[in-house]
Design a binder for these strands. Structure first.
Lengths: 242, 242
DNA sequence: CCCAATTGCGTATCTCGTACGCTCTCTGCG
DNA sequence: CGCAGAGAGCGTACGAGATACGCAATTGGG
């Protein structure tokens, strides 16, 4: 795949230059391919998504896919964009803090519905339609802050990165345990075994305290970090109350 | 690779059960394999690291590696641990804020030296020696905060995730531009083309303002986000001054 | 000394992504 | 209207990569 093909594929995702030309009517489309790939990932995880598996799901040949999607990598990027889905619409009168909370929670929910998304390699800045809409949504929520543009971008990156980390953790744990089984006690046991109290007093303090044995609900952990971020942004604005 | 082999390999990394046994003297070791793999990644990027390439660099056969490293995946995890290197030693009398700053900057420096590390898939909680040492270092810096254990862990995850995101962004940009070329103007051009001002007023505001054309130095951006996090943690402690 | 454990690694297999090129189907142009 | 060319589908083939299996050589223990 050349960078021209990548650019062409990005334009295609935005619906640019969709005019019909010569040739047979396509039986396939990028949309159908992405949908089939996402269904496969939902059912069996990202590792199951190969060009031949996707093609089989569409009852077609693997090489046919390349007429519509320039590469496997690009298919993954399109899947990521599909996962993100529709960005939340900013609410009038809403505080920027609540805007961030709603935005982050909505994105987290998308990741939870399609946990494989967090495993997709990041290959560039947001360029596909849904992602760019998500950017817009956050930037609108930050409008009232009056922060300079670079800082708004910084906040966007901070929050988006945080949600992505949360999703990475969730999918990692799910893959390790297969189901909702708790990974904490196993990890605590391993740390007890390998990290002696002499060299690792602080860590062992937490282990012995049972912190890893009874983790907070994932939702709570998520909000803890998010509130740190929101408070941190607030401090930039001389805001004492988040 | 079974989970028993994974556990055995983790123990090996910690130097557990290193007693010599029957059989020929090993000409190879996990350490040598990891070092060769890291050198290869440093020279040509993570994509160049295959078992055969690593073996070739060691003048041995690819299958020999499997006596010392259970899988390619585990080799990647070991490389990540090697990249992290020695954790910083906490400084007596240092504020927790400065502790976080020093910790984050040191970790960022490691990532910058081996940018490929950010591309290594995350497959589980920190279990290898260096990573666990980094955990200990952060937890020690957080000791004086008096935060409950779960919150200390939350802060550790927040900061570590943030540094990882920063590193991911850096390696992504470097791979897109090949060198230190600025990606901003290209991205701005693309956004101007695809994101019209009507549907994307906030984003286009930033684009037209030139925010993407002249990015802040990466170091500055890094510290902006880090200071948001530190301030957010501070707010938890009723600290008004970071 | 013999047997068992360990190391090195050759052979083979399977999976995967995709380049190349052929055939068939449409459309635009002369 | 007819035809050349563009585009869709996809078969064949290839290279690359990870790694299972098993053989030969080297050690240590009984």
């Amino acid at each position: 795949m050349t960078s021209n093909e990548a650019l062409t594929a990005i334009h295609a995702a935005w619906g640019v230059k969709e005019s019909r030309q010569r040739g047979p009517r396509p039986g396939l489309s990028a949309e159908r391919i992405v949908a089939a790939a996402c269904e496969l990932a939902d059912a069996e995880g990202l590792g199951a998504v190969s060009m031949s598996r996707v093609a089989a799901a569409l009852d077609t040949g693997a090489m046919s896919l390349y007429r519509h999607v320039p590469s496997k990598d690009h298919l993954l990027a399109l899947m990521f964009d599909a996962m993100a889905g529709q960005a939340p619409v900013p609410v009038d009168g809403e505080t920027w803090q609540d805007g961030i909370r709603r935005w982050a929670s909505a994105l987290r929910a998308s990741y939870l519905r399609h946990s494989w998304a967090a495993q997709i390699p990041i290959t560039g800045p947001p360029a596909l339609p849904n992602q760019v809409h998500w950017m817009e949504a956050m930037l609108r929520s930050l409008s009232e802050t009056g922060l300079p543009g670079t800082h708004k971008l910084g906040v966007l990156q901070l929050v988006a990165g945080y949600v992505h980390d949360d999703a990475t953790m969730n999918v990692t744990i799910a893959r390790r345990t297969g189901s909702g089984e708790d990974i904490g006690p196993h990890y605590a046991g391993l740390l007890r075994e390998l990290a002696d109290a002499q060299r690792f007093p602080a860590l062992r303090g937490l282990v012995d305290e049972g912190v890893f044995d009874r983790a907070d609900p994932p939702e709570e952990q998520f909000h803890f970090g998010l509130e740190r971020i929101i408070a941190g942004v607030g401090s930039l604005l001389g805001t004492t109350k988040p």
